[in-house]
Design a protein around this nucleic acid. Structure first.
Length: 600
RNA sequence: GCGCCCUUAGCUCAGUUGGAUAGAGCGUUGGGUUCCGAUCCCAAAGGUCAGAGGUUCGAAUCCUCUAGGGCGCGCCA
């Protein structure tokens, strides 16, 4: 509809150009938007205001000229000039009513743009280190990333969903050491667990599995393990200075490698990695989050990709040596300071892997690359972009969506975030408490760069305060009305309904039709801005329009034509609710559990 | 100290490329169901868009400064 009006205006302006009323040459983008106030019609354009200066005419006068040259359209009932020079369009009822046909014809494809490009977009999200179960912070990245990928797909892009598995590096070594120490403990060694180790209960589970397969074969006396190790920090993590927790754990890792040997060490490491990764996969799959690709960080080193990336930087003159390490001159590309890519000990840094990883994304042919990162990584963006620029890639094709933290509340009370030291509430436990639908909806409800207050009480409540139930109830209610109609022998006739859409003339119907018509534009705009929360807000609006309509008018009336016209509108509404919920990964139930069902 | 993000109603938040009288929900107050599920709907009150300058026909939106909050500033990942 918008584009139709733009075309009309465009034609009018070309006529004016021919008469030299408007300067020849390129016309500016014609702005047409939804009028906020009903008095201002359905759509409004400010084109006369923006062109007034160059045309050297008063805005209202120019607006009159434009209106006089507008081609006739059966979709436009009348056009008015208002305020400082806005051109307001009032649509013909048929133009609104036709939306129902469009939705019923397209079904699940309504709002879905045709594929515009052969080159896919990549969305990388969650990518949590596989050293423990996902917690509620990762959940938001999962919900937003997954909804964003769906949204981009709906907007006509080909999307690849990827998880970057950090299966290398010191954190993973610490996990392996933690597993091994718990294994020794299970074997009966008097282990004093390191302050810096992973203390979660899941580490015991892996240790027991290790014992199942290897019995006592990997057991070494604790005295051998601890020999000459620097003392650990105080258990309460106070500054006391009793020892160095970093040096302590590093020594234990080194000792593990010499005592076990490379192969057994790798076996422990891999068992920990695969167990946790499998858990993460299951967790996300249950959450309705799926991936096309799990990309291994370790593979970058093993394939030599990291070496190649560093070499390319070196050859293009962006590296220099200082203090025995190799530095990337990222300040030349806007970063705050230069960054080390190869350490003094010859090991590449995590950053070096990340350069290779991102370079690989470009080489894989993605037109756009979207990274969903926790907000604490924001300082990392300039250096990654700097590296890509240095390698001759267009850094603007990389877009980072920063996701702020979610804070759990139970009513007004801030919920306990850690059960034990360093152990966050898991995504699993959150899902168990509030359900997948509420979790996903709440996670995406806020703009991603906004902190999220996640109210557990609200998420589980069944009332209009809870937006998930509010939207889902609208869907269920429509299903219920249709069923009720069938029970009365008034099964909905699509043909008869569509033949009488002109009967949809009530204010509430018009409002609902306008909201339905807006859906494709919403998808397009939300996708362009990488803002899935807009879909959530739209659905709440749509649900409100429906519930209001429901209360104001009867659908199951005796007049066959009117009834089927209204039911057609309801079916269209249900379709759009479904399509929108689908983007968010939230289910569209056909009936809602009633409160009294709970009581025994 | 430097950098990035944020600040809109009592609370939690929307606000589409700068547009007309800044919007929802909750909470508060007052209403609505012999009828398709009241898990719903309607109405009222509630604002110096953190503050001060600037840009222009026009600013919550763009620019500068100030105040407050969050995060980041490793040869960790």
């Amino acid at each position: 509809m918008k584009s139709h009006l733009c075309e009309l205006l465009h034609t009018a302006l070309q006529n004016l150009q021919a008469q030299n009323i408007v300067a020849a040459g390129a016309l500016p983008d014609i702005g047409v938007e939804h009028a906020r106030d009903q008095q201002h019609g359905d759509f409004a354009s400010n084109i006369a205001l923006t062109l007034a200066k160059s045309a050297q005419r008063k805005p209202r006068e120019l607006a009159q000229q434009i209106v006089a040259h507008l081609p006739a359209s059966d979709k436009v009932a009348r056009v008015e000039i208002a305020g400082p020079g806005f051109i307001n369009f009032f649509l013909a009822p048929a133009a609104w009513q036709d939306v129902v046909n469009a939705i019923l014809d397209a079904g699940a494809a309504y709002g879905r743009a045709a594929q515009t490009s052969a080159h896919p977009v990549q969305v990388e999200f969650v990518s949590a280190n596989p050293n423990g179960p996902l917690h509620v912070g990762h959940g938001r990245g999962a919900a937003i990333g997954s909804a964003l990928a769906n949204l981009l797909e709906a907007a006509g892009l080909k999307v690849q969903r990827e998880y970057y598995v950090n299966d290398a590096g010191r954190q993973m070594d610490i996990l392996a050491a933690s597993v091994w120490l718990r294994y020794l403990e299970v074997c009966g060694e008097p282990v004093v667990f390191p302050v810096n180790g992973y203390k979660g209960a899941y580490v015991y589970d892996i240790a027991r599995a290790l014992q199942q397969t290897h019995a006592a074969r990997l057991r070494h006396p604790l005295s051998d393990v601890m020999r000459d190790a620097p003392s650990d920090a105080a258990a309460d993590d106070s500054v006391g200075g009793s020892g160095d927790k970093e040096a302590h754990i590093d020594a234990l890792i080194a000792r593990m490698k010499t005592l076990l040997g490379a192969d057994d060490c790798r076996a422990v490491f891999d068992l920990g990695l695969s167990t946790i990764l499998a858990d993460i996969r299951d967790d996300l799959a249950e959450f309705g989050v799926r991936y096309d690709h799990w990309f291994s960080e370790r593979s970058l080193t093993e394939s030599g990709a990291v070496q190649r990336a560093v070499e390319r930087l070196r050859q293009s003159g962006h590296l220099y040596e200082s203090g025995g390490a190799w530095w990337f001159r990222s300040t030349a590309f806007g970063d705050e300071k230069d960054r080390v890519v190869v350490r003094e000990n010859g090991q590449p840094t995590y950053f070096a892997s990340d350069i290779a990883y991102h370079l690989g994304k470009y080489e894989r042919g993605f037109e756009r690359i979207v990274n969903v990162w926790g907000a604490d990584h924001h300082g990392y963006i300039p250096r990654v972009k700097a590296a890509l620029s240095a390698l001759g890639e267009d850094a603007a094709r990389l877009h980072v969506v920063l996701v702020q933290f979610a804070i759990l509340f139970r009513g007004k009370q801030r919920a306990q975030m850690s059960t034990r030291a360093g152990e966050f509430v898991t995504l699993r436990s959150l899902r168990a408490e509030v359900g997948n639908d509420a979790a996903r909806f709440f996670y995406v409800m806020r703009k991603s760069d906004q902190h999220l207050d996640f109210d557990l009480e609200l998420a589980t409540s069944r009332s209009n305060e809870n937006p998930v139930y509010y939207v889902q109830y609208a869907h269920a209610r429509i299903c219920s009305v249709l069923k009720q109609g069938e029970d009365k022998g008034w099964a909905w006739s699509s043909v008869r309904g569509r033949a009488h859409l002109d009967l949809l003339v009530e204010g509430h119907e018009r409002k609902l039709l306008a909201t339905l018509a807006r859906y494709p534009e919403l998808i397009e705009a939300a996708a362009a801005l990488y803002e899935p929360h807009q879909v959530a807000y739209y659905l709440m609006d749509l649900a409100t329009d429906f519930h209001t309509y429901y209360n104001a008018l009867q659908f199951l009336v005796t007049d066959d034509n009117l009834r089927d016209a209204r039911l057609s509108l309801l079916v269209a509404t249900r379709q759009v609710l479904r399509n929108g919920l689908n983007v968010l990964g939230v289910s569209a139930p056909t009936s809602m559990q009633r409160d009294d069902d709970d009581e025994k």
